[in-house]
Nucleic acid binder design. Structure first.
Length: 214
DNA sequence: CGGAAGATCCACT
DNA sequence: GTGGATCTTCCGA
Protein backbone atom coordinates (compact mmCIF):
# COMPACT_ATOMS: atom_id res chain seq x y z
CA UNK A 1 0.00 0.00 0.00
CA UNK A 2 1.55 3.25 -1.11
CA UNK A 3 1.71 6.35 1.00
CA UNK A 4 -1.08 8.80 0.37
CA UNK A 5 -0.90 12.35 1.68
CA UNK A 6 -4.68 12.35 2.06
CA UNK A 7 -4.68 9.41 4.46
CA UNK A 8 -6.11 10.41 7.85
CA UNK A 9 -3.70 10.66 10.77
CA UNK A 10 -4.27 7.79 13.24
CA UNK A 11 -5.84 8.19 16.67
CA UNK A 12 -2.43 7.39 18.19
CA UNK A 13 -1.05 10.62 16.70
CA UNK A 14 -3.49 12.65 18.81
CA UNK A 15 -2.97 10.54 21.92
CA UNK A 16 0.06 12.60 22.94
CA UNK A 17 0.74 15.81 24.85
CA UNK A 18 -1.15 18.74 23.29
CA UNK A 19 2.07 20.71 22.78
CA UNK A 20 3.66 17.78 20.94
CA UNK A 21 0.60 17.35 18.74
CA UNK A 22 0.42 21.09 18.06
CA UNK A 23 4.04 21.14 16.87
CA UNK A 24 3.73 17.98 14.79
CA UNK A 25 0.54 19.19 13.09
CA UNK A 26 2.48 21.90 11.25
CA UNK A 27 2.85 20.83 7.63
CA UNK A 28 -0.06 18.41 7.88
CA UNK A 29 -3.19 18.85 5.80
CA UNK A 30 -6.66 19.83 6.95
CA UNK A 31 -9.05 18.42 4.36
CA UNK A 32 -12.65 19.43 3.74
CA UNK A 33 -14.87 17.55 1.34
CA UNK A 34 -18.34 18.94 0.68
CA UNK A 35 -21.09 17.75 -1.66
CA UNK A 36 -21.93 19.98 -4.61
CA UNK A 37 -25.06 21.93 -3.81
CA UNK A 38 -26.95 24.78 -5.32
CA UNK A 39 -25.79 28.18 -4.17
CA UNK A 40 -22.92 26.81 -2.09
CA UNK A 41 -19.46 25.87 -3.35
CA UNK A 42 -18.54 22.23 -2.78
CA UNK A 43 -15.72 19.93 -3.79
CA UNK A 44 -12.47 19.37 -1.93
CA UNK A 45 -10.55 22.07 -0.11
CA UNK A 46 -7.14 21.57 1.50
CA UNK A 47 -5.19 23.74 3.92
CA UNK A 48 -1.61 23.05 4.96
CA UNK A 49 -1.45 23.83 8.66
CA UNK A 50 1.02 26.61 9.41
CA UNK A 51 -0.06 27.77 12.89
CA UNK A 52 -1.49 26.04 15.98
CA UNK A 53 -1.90 26.56 19.71
CA UNK A 54 -1.97 23.99 22.51
CA UNK A 55 -4.43 24.18 25.42
CA UNK A 56 -3.59 21.91 28.31
CA UNK A 57 -6.83 21.44 30.26
CA UNK A 58 -7.24 21.74 34.05
CA UNK A 59 -4.08 23.65 35.07
CA UNK A 60 -4.27 25.96 32.03
CA UNK A 61 -6.32 29.04 32.83
CA UNK A 62 -6.68 29.83 29.11
CA UNK A 63 -8.23 26.42 28.43
CA UNK A 64 -11.97 25.98 28.23
CA UNK A 65 -11.39 22.92 30.44
CA UNK A 66 -9.65 25.03 33.10
CA UNK A 67 -10.25 23.70 36.61
CA UNK A 68 -12.15 20.75 35.17
CA UNK A 69 -14.86 22.92 33.64
CA UNK A 70 -17.38 20.77 31.80
CA UNK A 71 -20.58 22.19 30.30
CA UNK A 72 -22.79 21.44 27.29
CA UNK A 73 -20.69 23.88 25.29
CA UNK A 74 -17.32 22.19 25.83
CA UNK A 75 -18.49 18.61 26.26
CA UNK A 76 -16.57 17.55 23.14
CA UNK A 77 -13.28 18.35 24.86
CA UNK A 78 -13.81 15.18 26.86
CA UNK A 79 -14.21 12.92 23.82
CA UNK A 80 -11.31 10.60 22.91
CA UNK A 81 -8.24 12.03 21.10
CA UNK A 82 -8.83 12.98 17.46
CA UNK A 83 -12.31 14.44 17.87
CA UNK A 84 -13.29 18.00 16.97
CA UNK A 85 -14.21 20.70 19.45
CA UNK A 86 -15.87 23.66 17.70
CA UNK A 87 -17.08 26.68 19.64
CA UNK A 88 -18.77 29.98 18.82
CA UNK A 89 -17.05 33.16 19.94
CA UNK A 90 -17.57 36.94 19.89
CA UNK A 91 -21.07 36.51 18.55
CA UNK A 92 -19.91 35.76 15.01
CA UNK A 93 -16.93 33.42 14.69
CA UNK A 94 -16.18 29.73 15.09
CA UNK A 95 -12.92 28.12 16.22
CA UNK A 96 -11.81 24.55 15.45
CA UNK A 97 -9.83 22.35 17.83
CA UNK A 98 -8.77 18.71 17.92
CA UNK A 99 -8.85 16.86 21.25
CA UNK A 100 -5.60 15.32 22.52
CA UNK A 101 -6.63 14.29 26.03
CA UNK A 102 -3.06 14.74 27.32
CA UNK A 103 -1.35 15.98 29.42
CA UNK A 104 -4.71 16.49 31.17
CA UNK A 105 -8.36 15.75 30.40
CA UNK A 106 -9.80 18.43 28.12
CA UNK A 107 -6.50 19.19 26.39
CA UNK A 108 -6.74 20.22 22.73
CA UNK A 109 -5.04 21.97 19.83
CA UNK A 110 -6.53 25.08 18.19
CA UNK A 111 -6.07 25.55 14.44
CA UNK A 112 -5.05 29.17 13.89
CA UNK A 113 -3.95 29.33 10.28
CA UNK A 114 -3.51 27.33 7.10
CA UNK A 115 -2.02 27.80 3.65
CA UNK A 116 -4.44 27.01 0.79
CA UNK A 117 -3.31 24.07 -1.33
CA UNK A 118 -6.51 23.19 -3.15
CA UNK A 119 -10.02 24.58 -3.53
CA UNK A 120 -9.10 28.27 -3.31
CA UNK A 121 -12.13 29.29 -5.35
CA UNK A 122 -14.56 27.61 -2.97
CA UNK A 123 -12.78 28.93 0.12
CA UNK A 124 -12.73 32.47 -1.26
CA UNK A 125 -16.42 32.26 -2.06
CA UNK A 126 -17.23 31.13 1.47
CA UNK A 127 -15.12 34.00 2.80
CA UNK A 128 -16.96 36.47 0.60
CA UNK A 129 -13.80 37.28 -1.38
CA UNK A 130 -12.61 37.00 -4.97
CA UNK A 131 -9.54 35.26 -6.30
CA UNK A 132 -6.69 35.53 -6.13
CA UNK A 133 -6.85 36.24 -2.41
CA UNK A 134 -3.95 37.78 -0.53
CA UNK A 135 -1.78 35.78 1.91
CA UNK A 136 -3.76 35.02 5.05
CA UNK A 137 -7.05 36.31 3.66
CA UNK A 138 -8.58 32.86 3.38
CA UNK A 139 -7.36 31.13 6.54
CA UNK A 140 -4.97 33.48 8.36
CA UNK A 141 -6.76 33.27 11.69
CA UNK A 142 -8.98 30.75 13.52
CA UNK A 143 -12.25 32.43 12.56
CA UNK A 144 -11.26 32.84 8.92
CA UNK A 145 -10.10 29.23 8.75
CA UNK A 146 -13.48 27.97 9.90
CA UNK A 147 -15.36 30.21 7.51
CA UNK A 148 -13.15 29.12 4.60
CA UNK A 149 -13.83 25.46 5.34
CA UNK A 150 -17.51 25.87 6.25
CA UNK A 151 -16.91 24.66 9.80
CA UNK A 152 -19.47 25.47 12.48
CA UNK A 153 -21.07 23.85 15.51
CA UNK A 154 -22.45 21.05 13.35
CA UNK A 155 -18.88 19.68 13.17
CA UNK A 156 -18.55 19.72 16.96
CA UNK A 157 -17.74 16.21 18.19
CA UNK A 158 -16.81 14.88 14.74
CA UNK A 159 -13.98 12.32 14.49
CA UNK A 160 -11.20 14.03 12.51
CA UNK A 161 -9.47 10.67 12.02
CA UNK A 162 -12.14 9.52 9.58
CA UNK A 163 -13.04 10.74 6.11
CA UNK A 164 -16.75 10.01 6.43
CA UNK A 165 -17.57 13.30 8.11
CA UNK A 166 -16.03 15.30 5.28
CA UNK A 167 -13.47 16.94 7.57
CA UNK A 168 -10.22 15.27 8.59
CA UNK A 169 -6.54 15.67 9.34
CA UNK A 170 -4.28 14.06 6.78
CA UNK A 171 -0.65 12.93 6.72
CA UNK A 172 0.25 15.61 4.18
CA UNK A 173 3.87 15.94 3.17
CA UNK A 174 5.52 17.29 6.31
CA UNK A 175 9.04 18.66 5.99
CA UNK A 176 10.67 17.47 9.19
CA UNK A 177 13.58 19.82 8.62
CA UNK A 178 11.35 22.91 8.39
CA UNK A 179 11.91 25.52 11.14
CA UNK A 180 9.50 25.83 14.06
CA UNK A 181 8.79 29.02 16.00
CA UNK A 182 7.09 29.20 19.39
CA UNK A 183 5.61 32.03 21.44
CA UNK A 184 2.81 32.97 23.84
CA UNK A 185 -0.75 32.31 22.71
CA UNK A 186 -2.96 35.02 21.22
CA UNK A 187 -5.80 36.68 23.09
CA UNK A 188 -5.25 35.03 26.47
CA UNK A 189 -3.83 37.95 28.47
CA UNK A 190 -6.45 37.28 31.14
CA UNK A 191 -4.98 33.84 31.87
CA UNK A 192 -2.42 34.91 34.48
CA UNK A 193 0.73 32.83 34.52
CA UNK A 194 -0.50 30.65 31.64
CA UNK A 195 -0.60 33.67 29.33
CA UNK A 196 3.17 33.50 28.98
CA UNK A 197 3.50 29.80 28.30
CA UNK A 198 5.06 29.21 24.84
CA UNK A 199 2.23 27.11 23.44
CA UNK A 200 1.81 28.85 20.08
CA UNK A 201 3.53 27.12 17.16
CA UNK A 202 4.08 28.39 13.62
CA UNK A 203 6.21 28.23 10.53
CA UNK A 204 8.41 31.32 10.84
CA UNK A 205 8.23 33.61 7.83
CA UNK A 206 5.11 31.98 6.40
CA UNK A 207 2.85 34.70 5.03
CA UNK A 208 -0.34 32.88 5.96
CA UNK A 209 0.35 32.94 9.70
CA UNK A 210 -1.94 35.28 11.68
CA UNK A 211 -0.85 38.56 13.29
CA UNK A 212 1.25 39.23 15.17
CA UNK A 213 3.53 36.84 13.26
CA UNK A 214 6.00 34.66 15.08
C1' DC B 1 -31.82 36.55 36.53
C1' DG B 2 -28.56 40.12 34.99
C1' DG B 3 -24.21 41.41 33.52
C1' DA B 4 -19.80 40.85 31.76
C1' DA B 5 -16.46 38.73 28.94
C1' DG B 6 -14.82 36.28 25.16
C1' DA B 7 -8.82 31.18 22.06
C1' DT B 8 -11.91 37.32 16.47
C1' DC B 9 -12.32 40.12 12.42
C1' DC B 10 -12.86 44.29 9.90
C1' DA B 11 -13.21 49.12 8.90
C1' DC B 12 -11.57 53.35 9.89
C1' DT B 13 -8.17 57.01 11.48
C1' DG C 1 -3.56 51.42 16.53
C1' DT C 2 -8.35 51.66 18.08
C1' DG C 3 -13.07 50.57 18.53
C1' DG C 4 -17.42 48.38 17.12
C1' DA C 5 -20.10 44.30 15.74
C1' DT C 6 -22.80 40.59 17.77
C1' DC C 7 -24.57 36.85 20.90
C1' DT C 8 -23.73 32.71 23.52
C1' DT C 9 -22.11 31.15 27.74
C1' DC C 10 -21.11 31.33 32.40
C1' DC C 11 -20.90 32.86 37.04
C1' DG C 12 -22.27 35.46 40.89
C1' DA C 13 -26.11 37.35 43.50
Amino acid sequence: MSFDALTPLPVSFFDQDAATVAAQLLGRWLVRELPEERESPGGRSILEIVETEAYLGGPDRASHAWGGRRTPRNESLYLPPGHAYVYFIYGMHFCLNVVTGRPHPGAAVLFRAGEPLEGEEAMAARRGLGTPAGPGDLAGGPGKLCQALAVDRSQDGLALTRTEGGLWLAEGRPDHAAPLATGPRIGVAYAGEAAAWPLRFARPGNRHVSRPRL
